[in-house]
Design a binder for these strands. Structure first.
Lengths: 336, 336
DNA sequence: TTGAAAGCGATACCAA
DNA sequence: TTGGTATCGCTTTCAA
């Protein structure tokens, strides 16, 4: 263990100069800084985390709370964890995991023990108990997702409603008048918030554009191929010419194979838009137009809000919606 | 922020007595301990994490490294993260995440900054670069999984080879002489270690028991329904009467539907064993006999090894294999 | 059974 | 531009 004293001695300066040189919080002459940096590198100096936490005002750790419910879509969740971790590391922060029960109890614990500088909240439920805790805590807390009661909270999320509207508009603009929304498994509309927001956007826009809309779920508790096929059969029966998919990747597969079984070609006979997609639709048999859900976007924004708050004291409770983007890959055409 | 001084004052004792009373590291008279505990509770005292890290020898944090490769099976991985987190919390430890690049660089960083007391390694690859780093580090490190070169490392894992043998034995004991192993996607046999170990056990035991064995993969890079169906078709063609499945849950679904399409009933016409399964096969149409992979088992063992090392200084490099268990659910019968 | 006090290794204030 | 040093809140000897 190399300490700051050893670096100071090796560089022939005081420990305070070493601290300032390495943190950059005070101007240090070019040549002494070089000497200090060289000494630190030579000795393999890494500041002691505990000492930094105690002396400074920063622990350089963010908590990340994730309830890990059984109905959580694991791949998407993993992508968010990774994105959050990378966003944090980019600014010198580590991620402390708070899972499960600890998600709530842990938020209080890491706050009062001053273990973390801020909290990021993942996998937000409509009636999320963490909302209440966040309000009672004095360290910056950012929700990646939006609970029903977001009063006084700072939230970041894709604008799912706008994404829903955007999907409908692209389809109606192309001339489609009868659309099926192939949505999440039913349970998600109770345990999560974003599926409802997307559906609301779709419904509003369909009404506004005078399009006939039918909504169907990809299953009761998880993607159920039979449910997807049934939805497709019914849609074909009705003569719907367009689909908006807001579901896991396997639902997309099933949809595409069901359509081809009906002899329908995506991009000519029927149009398909995948909304709030967190995987690459080019891995599917047919590339689908996409309104992507980009974990890195939400996580970067969340981290930068936290840093603003931490470093510039800017308190900005409120909801930050990320405008959706549209990726055109040829799956939407004017119906013949 | 309540400090230990305030608790001491409220209880009318010195801070050292408070420290000892709460940590239990020194006997404290019953009545003073009560007074101290009451005072601490009344004031909502939580020790400062930074101060504890600096003064003590423990940070009460474990690092958990997870590369989060794109071919990682997300649900299983999530289960391991959750299990590790719970095992750690049970002993008062938090989990610090090291993802991706940081998985390697981070191991050194958190060690030299004394941020964590030990490291748990998840998602171990055959040629895992973290093996080398673990050897150069002086804090306890436990691999949950086994790299090719495990020299000098401490590893914990299900005994996949024994699981493979066990699956074969159950089937040959029931009188099956022609078995198909429906394995992981091909890529997993390169990026992971455990699929090979299971396959080896299956092959050895099949040879030993004189059973004809055919191995097939569930897809090239991920579960591919077509690949699974093709494997089933070929197996039926050959007249195989038994299947060992070591694959994701969706591969099981496809297998079952393919079998029923052939008019075969599991548990009478054909036998199926699911090996190293990390989900509940009772959620399938047909409950399958299972040799379960239980994340909590591996993680609890890993944590207890770490604690032994930390608290009793017991250094026990070596591989700890967890013996497999067999759950009988009626999917294996003597062929008619 | 309890207390006093010496660190732990940084940060950041006050001087020079 | 630099240095000295109080301070952070706890753990843990050493004494009593």
């Amino acid at each position: 263990m190399t300490t700051i004293h050893e670096v100071a001695e090796a560089a022939g300066v005081s420990i305070s100069t070493v601290s300032y040189a390495l943190s950059g919080k005070r101007p240090v002459s070019e040549k002494t800084r070089r000497r200090i940096e060289d000494a630190a590198a030579a000795l393999g100096y890494t500041p002691d985390a505990g000492a930094r936490m105690l002396a400074g005002r920063r622990t350089h750790i963010f908590a990340l709370t994730e309830p890990l419910r059984t109905d959580t879509h694991a791949p998407t969740h993993m992508a968010f964890v990774l994105a959050a971790s990378m966003a944090a590391r980019r600014h010198g922060y580590d991620i402390l995991l708070l899972t499960d029960e600890q998600a709530s109890e842990g938020m209080s614990r890491v706050t009062s023990s001053r273990l973390v500088d801020a909290i990021l909240v993942l996998d937000v439920a409509p009636d999320d108990p963490r909302a209440q805790i966040a309000r009672s805590i004095r360290i910056p807390t950012v929700f990646i997702g939006i609970p029903d009661d977001a009063d006084g909270l700072t939230c970041v999320d894709l604008d799912f409603e706008a994404a829903g509207r955007m999907a409908v508009e692209r389809l109606t603009d192309a001339g489609h008048a009868a659309i099926t929304l192939l949505g999440q498994p039913e349970v998600s509309y109770r345990t999560s918030n974003f599926p409802r927001r997307l559906r609301r956007g779709v419904e509003d826009s369909a009404k506004q554009h005078g399009a006939a809309l039918t909504t169907a779920c990809a299953g009761a508790v998880a993607t159920d191929p039979a449910a997807v096929r049934a939805a497709v059969d019914a849609a074909v029966e009705r003569g719907d010419s367009a689909f908006i998919v807001h579901a896991a990747d396997d639902a997309h597969e099933v949809l595409l194979s069901a359509l081809s079984r009906h002899g329908l070609t995506v991009g000519s006979d029927v149009s398909v838009v995948s909304a709030a997609t967190s995987f690459d639709t080019r891995t599917l048999g047919v590339p689908l137009d996409t309104i992507p859900l980009i974990p890195a976007q939400s996580c970067n924004l969340a981290v930068s809000i936290v840093l603003d708050r931490l470093e510039r004291g800017e308190a900005d409770a409120g909801i930050h919606l990320i405008p959706p983007a549209y990726h055109q890959l040829g799956s939407v055409r004017t119906p013949s």
